[in-house]
Computed example of a mutant assay.
Amino acid sequence: MQIIPVIDLLAGQVVRALKGERSTYRPIESPLCGSSEPRQVAATLLAHCAARRLYVADLDGLLGGAPQAALLARLLRQLPGVEFWIDAGFADRDAAQSLLAALGPEAQRVVPVFGSESLASPEALARCMAPPAAGVLSLDRRHERPLDPGGCWTRPGLWPQRLIVMTLDRVGSDAGPDLDTLAEVRRHAPHAELVGAGGIRDAADLRAAQAAGADAWLVASALHDLRLPRAG
């Protein structure tokens, strides 16, 4: 099972995500990293997982503000060779392209994540996923209800090859992964690469997620709390 480490960025710091309630997020206190400074946290997580892919939730953008373009550009320069999956609350393809343009040449290592909670319409979804797009669709839900103003959940014909199944109320909750939702998405997308998000507590959860059809999982809290061993 591939682990994709996650950093949540708010006002220039890494914060601890808890159940998707973003107003409660505070700078992370991590036995693993000992810091909330973005480069240090990202580098430590990547090394712990032996990963070359990093998921970045830009909470400034997700909360309706401007994405943290200068910080993201700096991180890209500081972490050469790492692929960044960035969710900054893109409402449409133009919003993603605007951030990519601001990131300059390093943007070639960025994969935009289009969240169902943020996409504005079915037309926006279709345009985001039309060739030559290389984005990821995140199917977001909270408390068993889809977050879906654009109708993403009901249009599997528009889904790309890579999908995130994001259960926000499981994030940082120590409640275990939402394997029922993962299985539901797998039924609609039998050949997609599925990346789960939320709820992983330990290696046993990762094994259960893999058995349920996940190809990878986004993880933060279990890494910071030293509940997953260092890779290798």
Results as ranks from 00 to 15, higher is better:
34 G>L: 14
195 V>A: 02
225 D>P: 00
203 A>Y: 00
66 A>N: 12
170 R>D: 08
101 A>Y: 04
82 V>A: 05
229 P>G: 10
73 A>W: 03
204 A>K: 12
160 P>F: 07
85 W>D: 12
179 L>I: 05
198 G>T: 05
117 E>T: 03
94 D>C: 08
95 A>G: 07
165 V>I: 15
66 A>C: 04
35 S>I: 04
179 L>G: 03
130 A>Q: 15
27 P>D: 12
104 G>E: 13
230 R>S: 10
134 A>W: 13
7 I>A: 08
144 E>F: 04
206 L>K: 06
3 I>M: 07
206 L>M: 15
53 R>W: 01
102 A>H: 00
17 A>D: 05
113 V>E: 10
71 L>K: 06
178 D>C: 11
214 A>V: 04
111 V>A: 06
105 P>W: 13
178 D>Q: 04
63 L>P: 00
62 L>T: 02
126 A>C: 09
148 D>S: 06
64 G>M: 01
176 G>A: 11
148 D>R: 04
112 P>D: 10
143 H>T: 01
81 G>A: 08
113 V>N: 08
176 G>L: 12
104 G>W: 13
19 K>P: 00
11 A>I: 00
75 L>P: 01
219 V>I: 13
173 S>M: 08
14 V>N: 10
55 Y>K: 12
78 Q>E: 15
149 P>A: 09
118 S>M: 13
26 R>S: 09
31 P>A: 08
51 A>Q: 03
176 G>K: 06
206 L>S: 05
88 A>M: 09
203 A>Q: 15
6 V>I: 14
98 S>G: 13
168 L>M: 14
124 A>S: 13
48 H>P: 04
125 L>H: 02
172 G>I: 10
43 A>Q: 15
145 R>C: 05
169 D>F: 01
56 V>L: 15
224 H>G: 05
107 A>R: 12
127 R>L: 14
208 A>M: 10
72 L>K: 05
210 Q>T: 06
30 S>N: 08
12 G>Y: 08
152 C>S: 15
20 G>M: 13
136 V>P: 02
42 A>G: 06
62 L>H: 00
221 S>V: 06
113 V>S: 10
39 R>I: 07
210 Q>G: 14
68 Q>M: 03
163 L>Q: 08
64 G>N: 11
228 L>E: 09
224 H>I: 02
155 R>F: 02
178 D>M: 09
102 A>F: 01
68 Q>V: 00
2 Q>P: 01
178 D>S: 03
99 L>N: 04
64 G>R: 06
31 P>D: 06
167 T>C: 09
24 T>K: 12
64 G>P: 06
57 A>R: 05
185 V>I: 15
142 R>I: 06
149 P>K: 12
232 G>F: 04
122 P>G: 07
28 I>Q: 11
89 G>C: 07
183 A>R: 15
185 V>Q: 08
76 L>Q: 09
228 L>C: 03
43 A>Y: 01
148 D>W: 12
